[in-house]
Design a protein around this nucleic acid. Structure first.
Length: 476
RNA sequence: UCCCCGAUAGCUCAACGGUAGAGCGAGCGGCUGUUAACCGCUAGGUUCAAGGUUCGAAUCCUUGUCGGGGAGCCA
């Protein structure tokens, strides 16, 4: 008899013998026909469980079958038959039901068949994937990850494994987690009294990476089209529904390319991913559409079908100022050229003004990183210097992608490093790329969890990663 | 880190200075080819912690811890 995944059995022709293995979602009993039990069994392979019908003439019916509860692990052998009831096309008429693992005490089982809040389920993260929502999130996460690799592979990109540990403190994206084997209670000291990191494992200070970008640029300047997809760590004390201390990021980098090509790549990729997800995980997406965010599928389809608006920062400031002046919008924070846009401004642009994803480009240089390419003065009619940066803003999430064309001119790069008060020596290998066959190149970072939020409608980022790490949160 | 809100049964919440309750879940029973099942019964509480006010505190005050929403930082 063939062991069938539930997803296969639900689509199979009636009449064949099958074995189903999984966990009980619910049991319903009936005294009709001499007594029978309906077992909803799921194995995580798809959104729907399969119904196993167990009759009272099974030898272990009274002793076991009639006593199984939500969460029990079972194996069922039987015949796949057309269902007599409503709600499912096929079901398993069981000849054997074996209880593989009991639930010790149903009264204390943390995820019985009832509604749970996501906040509660976070406290039982080792069991929450047994619920329909978190099972769906896990499958969507997998499907998106595969689609990302497929998207890049089909376009000739190479997947580069950039390091998790970095000994350079020059990545410049905020607080980092230290990596050390020193005795924290009694570290070796320098004559000045500081910690002597020369005696540490790497012979210098080391941290977890906050971005693979600088490393992947080196491969870009040799293999032309590359990307990273790995974990990233930020030690910021961020307590929001959009931030994690450990998250996954996709960072493509393309050579012989400018910001326009970068934005085109970002748009093409997002559309590919949405379209692929809607096709491959139609069951889970229907679930999210129905139970998590009404209209989700229409929203995603609309994005796949429309082109993203490109909008220079300087023009965005004009739009925001006019919206404020006309009373269309009331902003808490000031709108002025040279200031960074606040969440409320970004949300206004993407959610109210354009009602579609917006690619904001060409920001003032003073609010962006040193490695972003400096524009010629007066680009977009801007009153100050701008750089070739872009943020992709989407309704509901805000910034989902941040990217830029990189500064490939060594003299300009050096000037920027100095302006920002950084040390050229720290960037010696990064600067070498500009000395030896430098080339215009660009790239961006896509937050994987934010992508999943965007695709599922899940409100809190801690619910789209298996075991979230955030301030004061590292259980499991 | 800042602002606001919250913490009471396994879960979600009520009780608004005077005897701690309901729904869901769980257990038992009834009914039904059932499927958000339905009907009945039962069990279930150091009201987050520590202090304070009061004759009396789940309720008021202080501090802390944890959680949620928003902001900043960003992806």
């Amino acid at each position: 008899m063939a062991w069938m995944k539930v997803c296969e059995a639900l689509r199979a022709q009636p009449g064949q013998k099958v074995v189903i293995k999984g966990w009980i979602r619910t049991r319903r009993d009936s005294k009709a026909d001499g007594g029978l039990s309906f077992l909803q069994v799921h194995d995580g392979t798809c959104q729907d469980p399969i119904q196993v019908v167990a009759r009272s003439d099974l030898p272990n019916y009274a002793s076991e079958v009639a006593r199984v509860t939500t969460g029990c692990a079972v194996e069922a052998e039987g015949t796949l038959v057309a269902s007599q009831g409503q709600g499912q096309a096929v079901e398993v008429a069981a000849s054997v039901v074996r209880v593989v693992g009991w639930v010790d005490d149903p009264d204390t089982y943390p995820v019985p068949q009832k509604r749970h809040t996501f906040e509660y389920l976070r406290e039982v993260a080792h069991l929450r994937m047994r619920t329909n929502t978190f099972g769906a999130v896990a499958r969507v996460r997998h499907t998106l990850a595969c689609a990302i690799h497929r998207f890049f592979d089909q376009r000739g990109f190479f997947y580069i494994h950039t390091p998790i540990i970095t000994a350079s403190d020059c990545e410049g994206a905020g607080q980092m987690f230290r990596v050390s084997t020193l005795d924290m209670l009694n570290p070796p000291r320098t004559p000045e009294g500081g910690v002597d990191f020369s005696q540490d494992f790497f012979g210098r200070e080391a941290h977890l990476t906050v971005s693979g970008q600088l490393n992947v640029e080196t491969y870009c300047c040799a293999l032309s089209r590359v990307y990273t997809f790995g974990p990233t760590f930020r030690a910021e004390n961020s307590n929001t529904s959009r931030h994690l201390a450990e998250f996954w990021m996709i960072e493509p980098e393309i050579a012989f390319a400018d910001l326009a090509a970068d934005a085109d790549l970002a748009e093409e990729m997002l559309k590919y991913l949405l379209d692929d997800l809607l096709t491959r995980r139609a069951d889970d997406m229907a679930f999210f559409d129905q139970r998590i965010e009404k209209g989700l599928i229409e929203r995603l389809k609309h994005i796949v079908g429309s082109s993203f608006r490109r909008l220079p920062y300087t023009e965005a400031i004009g739009i925001l100022e006019r919206a404020q002046a006309s009373g269309d919008a009331h902003f808490e924070f000031p709108v002025r050229w040279g200031l960074d846009l606040q969440s409320e401004h970004e949300r206004y642009l993407t959610e109210q003004h354009f009602k579609q994803p917006v690619v904001l480009v060409n920001y003032p240089k003073q609010i962006k990183a040193f490695y972003m390419r400096l524009h010629a003065p007066g680009t977009d009619g801007a009153p100050g210097d701008t750089v070739a940066a872009m943020d992709v803003l989407v309704p509901g999430i805000g910034e989902i992608i941040g990217g830029s064309q990189r500064e490939e001119r060594l003299d300009v790069l050096d000037r920027r490093i100095e302006e920002m008060g950084l040390k050229k020596e720290d960037y010696w290998w990064y600067r070498d790329l500009r000395k030896y066959g430098t080339v215009p190149h660009a790239g961006f970072g896509l937050g994987f969890e934010r992508l999943i939020q965007f695709c599922t409608g899940m409100q809190n980022i801690r619910d789209v990663i298996p075991f979230p790490r955030a301030p004061k949160q590292a259980e499991f």
